[in-house]
């Protein structure tokens, strides 16, 4: 059943860290650095990350049992939620207090666990929305088509090229609502590419995706790295993590409990503990990646 075995093994980036491997280890060339980021809901501490660095031009997986605070951490990093405490920076620029849309403009683009394809817009309009260069989006310019028509044609060409890669070009005039769940995931990723991002953060890109599509999704993620982008993704599918990730960060109960290359980190007792602590019914084999995990109830 596992779909990724058929593709040839991707080239892993190695030597990303500096010094001994431990949670919060420094990276040679970090793109994103978080320090003391804490988010509390009432009495519950959802995220408390002391220090973490995301390596540039590599694929990093963020894993952990349900309720570990992965999605909340994503929200905090991208400005969709504000932490009670802490600082974090992207390319050396502090993102504390920067609103979500400005974070996106800096080149840090995210997708959502529950896909947010804009259902009643066409696939092409979804793509065009990703572009950051259209001055016709300004109210003052929008009334004068001669100011934006040419740019719109350029954007459309670029969108078509990306859509072709994602095999969505035939659907370009359909409403996004008519796509399948997997196609919507693809569309969301394609749309993110329209913004020319530096760091792409994918929240469970494989969740709910038809097995027939997983392979192409994996390839697209690997392509991002080849094109010089950095990828950080949350995933429950350990098989996928082992297959494509260069680096793995493990979260449990809001904290980073382990880091390392995929094969090593899976053997780390802290990781096995974290998973066993919350899912004692799960066979250790699934955790270490020999079997695909059963579909777990999704984090809110």
């Amino acid at each position: 059943m596992s779909s990724s075995t058929s593709s040839s093994s991707p080239v892993k980036s190695t030597g990303l860290h500096v010094g001994a491997i431990k949670p919060g280890v420094a990276k040679k060339d970090p793109i994103l650095v978080a320090d003391g980021v804490r988010r509390q809901f009432g009495g519950l501490v959802a995220v408390e990350v002391e220090h973490v660095e995301i390596p540039r031009n590599a694929i990093t997986a963020l894993i952990g049992p349900n309720g570990a605070g992965k999605t909340t951490f994503f929200n905090l990093l991208t400005g969709f939620d504000q932490p009670n405490d802490g600082k974090w920076s992207f390319n050396g620029k502090s993102l504390a207090g920067v609103s979500a849309f400005k974070v996106a403009r800096l080149g840090l683009i995210r997708t959502f666990q529950l896909t947010k394809a804009l259902g009643l817009l066409t696939v092409m309009d979804n793509m065009k929305l990703g572009s950051t260069e259209q001055r016709g989006e300004k109210l003052s310019a929008s009334l004068f088509p001669f100011l934006w028509k040419k740019k719109d044609a350029e954007i459309e060409d670029k969108a078509l090229e990306i859509l072709r890669r994602f095999k969505l070009d035939e659907k370009k005039d359909d409403f996004a609502a008519s796509l399948s769940g997997g196609q919507r995931k693809l569309l969301e990723m394609a749309r993110a590419l329209m913004t020319n991002p530096e760091l792409v953060m994918l929240d469970e890109p494989m969740a709910g995706v038809n097995p027939a599509l997983t392979e192409s999704l994996l390839e697209h993620i690997l392509n991002l790295k080849q094109e010089g982008m950095t990828v950080l993704f949350v995933e429950h599918d350990m098989h996928m993590v082992r297959h494509i990730a260069d680096w793995v960060i493990v979260m449990a109960e809001g904290k980073v409990v382990a880091e390392g290359a995929p094969d090593e980190v899976m053997k780390n007792p802290a990781v096995i503990d974290a998973y066993l602590g919350s899912h004692q019914d799960i066979d250790l084999g699934t955790v270490t990646g020999r079997v695909t995990l059963p579909t777990l109830p999704k984090e809110k």
Partner: peptide, 17 residues
């Protein structure tokens, strides 16, 4: 286009900058 996108899902549009 942006306004209609916001109608559908404002977080998605926000995440596009």
């Amino acid at each position: 286009r942006v306004i209609k996108g916001i109608r559908e899902d404002e977080d998605a549009v926000r995440s596009l900058g």
